[in-house]
Nucleic acid binder design. Structure first.
Lengths: 298, 298
DNA sequence: AGCATGAACTTTATCCATAAAAAACAACTT
DNA sequence: AAGTTGTTTTTTATGGATAAAGTTCATGCT
């Protein structure tokens, strides 16, 4: 049966809004709520119905208003708000990066399905989606081959990344001075220096900033294939570093400094300087990844 | 139910071998046949059983040999030898390129399933696989958006293609003279000039040659992401030109000449000359595609 | 006319079932 | 011991069913 994670997530969000007082007085119309939560009206109605049943919302002659205070255990647990497909993703990435899954291992849809507690269909869809990451390969009628999260993989990934990033940085720097992206870049630079001040405790925030920065660079000259490739990178890094936290603070601190130098270079519009800064940053990112790969490898 | 296309294709192939006299005398063992046909022994046995039933093969005391002559209508029809997934692909590509499918159209899994006569599952798997081509986009819980086979698409595709090809051509030219790829390149050049002589009738053969040529260039410095991207190109071109045959002979003739110039440039190892030849060729490929796109667009 | 709610309908996400194909096991032959 | 064939088990490809979520239609209220 389809999971009701959309409903549960919407419910939790609405409960949050009630608690924050964002929904004081008469509640907005179903359509208005629908728009705010990005779900269908059907789901909004289901949420409202349950809120009323639990007296979190009252309804008198068609007028709805906040009811009793929201309690911590009114919320659905987080696990129930993620769709199956996402669970499969998480399980699989853990299976791949955490366990001793060696290059050359063959992947068995049925076995994974049993292990993750989902239907084979879900596994298969995930694997198809995942195959564009270049880590697995399908052999028809037979199964999938895990090619390994290896040094080769990292090298090939970074070769493309450098190519794309140099191209995008170059095009970024040649935008007219009137482009709004310059403003965004300046803002990002400030965010970087702010984070640097609080690095001791906030170093986790870097990955969000990293993402915003590299996506901003691409924004000046959009290309869907480059964007897609950046999705690959984001995905890989997300999971890889989630389970690989050595030196995180130090790594991020260094990366912030590199970003700042890179931003300065962009603002200078000097092609050679941009190239240097960009390459320096990516080279260090690559070294970091490679080092942690070797740790993974024994 | 799963289709038995693997069996039927294997059957047809075996029938062909019988007809060609490749299986004269005592038939090879099941294992040997298995290896030659790249299917499992289970399938081989099924084929043999049917061949015997139809007396195309005789069996006396465990010895199998060719039986009566193979007739044209011993073969299974071609349509029955392609798996469902492939049918879906063909139908979808036709739907996309042939019909007046406009950018922004939303794609309905259920409707396509009905239209193509398959289960929704198959459609969904195809769409997931196809999504890496950058022509469709998934919106969760809602459906897929067709972004259109547009001019933008072609431009973005070619921007990447040029980047990759320049990189690969450059690295190819810097291989040691002892690399076996130089020999392959020379052979390909001959194949090109041969084809040119027979261009009047054999111009269809160009696409195979084109593929071999560009894949050879990539072989000198393998990168899975570049290979994958070349798969995208191959796929797109395959279907696009399958339905768009204006000027095919002329186009291919021009492309052969460009290839030869490109090969000469590679053999000269002169970076600047390589760059020129490569760019010239890709520019003309792009123009061709763009022109046919405009035809498609009204 | 435009927006709100109610109800009906359609589509997606998900599970389950099963024949075809592959793989593993067993027994036999040379 | 290595290669055959026969048999059994496992896995993949594909169809089908259904609750959840999205969308459309109908009705009523300013």
């Amino acid at each position: 049966m389809r999971t009701d994670t959309v409903y549960k997530k919407a419910f939790n969000r609405t409960a949050n809004m009630l608690r924050d007082g964002q929904l004081a007085g008469e509640l907005p119309s179903e359509n208005e709520l629908r728009r705010r939560m990005c779900v269908s009206r059907t789901t909004v109605r289901k949420v409202l119905q349950e809120l009323i049943r639990r007296q979190l919302v009252t309804e008198h002659s068609g007028i709805r208003a906040a009811g009793r205070a929201v309690d911590d255990n009114d919320y659905y647990p987080d696990a129930e708000t993620t769709p199956r497909a996402k669970h499969v993703e998480q399980h699989f990435m853990e299976w791949m990066l955490r366990r001793d899954t060696r290059p050359g291992t063959s992947i068995n849809e049925l076995e994974l399905a049993r292990q993750f507690g989902v239907a084979t269909n879900g596994i298969r869809e995930f694997l198809i989606r995942f195959s564009r990451f270049g880590l697995i390969e399908k052999r028809p009628n037979t199964g999938w081959l895990f090619k390994g999260f290896t040094e080769d993989f990292a090298l090939e990934l970074f070769e493309i990344r450098v190519m794309f990033e140099l191209r995008s940085a170059h095009l970024f720097s040649r935008q007219p001075g009137t482009s709004p992206l310059w403003g965004k870049l300046a803002a990002l630079k400030i965010a970087h220096t702010e984070l640097l001040k609080r690095i001791e405790i906030r170093y986790h925030d870097f990955s969000g900033l990293d993402n915003r920065f590299h996506r901003l660079i691409n924004e000046a000259s959009p290309n869907r294939f480059i964007d897609d490739f950046y999705d690959v990178i984001t995905f890989i890094f997300h999971y890889h570093y989630q389970w690989n936290k050595q030196d995180e603070k130090q790594r991020n601190q260094a990366a912030i400094l590199e970003h700042v130098a890179y931003i300065d270079a962009l603002e200078s519009r000097d092609p050679e300087r941009i190239k240097q800064a960009c390459q320096a940053h990516l080279a260090s990112a690559r070294t970091t990844l490679m080092r942690s790969l070797i740790g993974l490898d024994q």
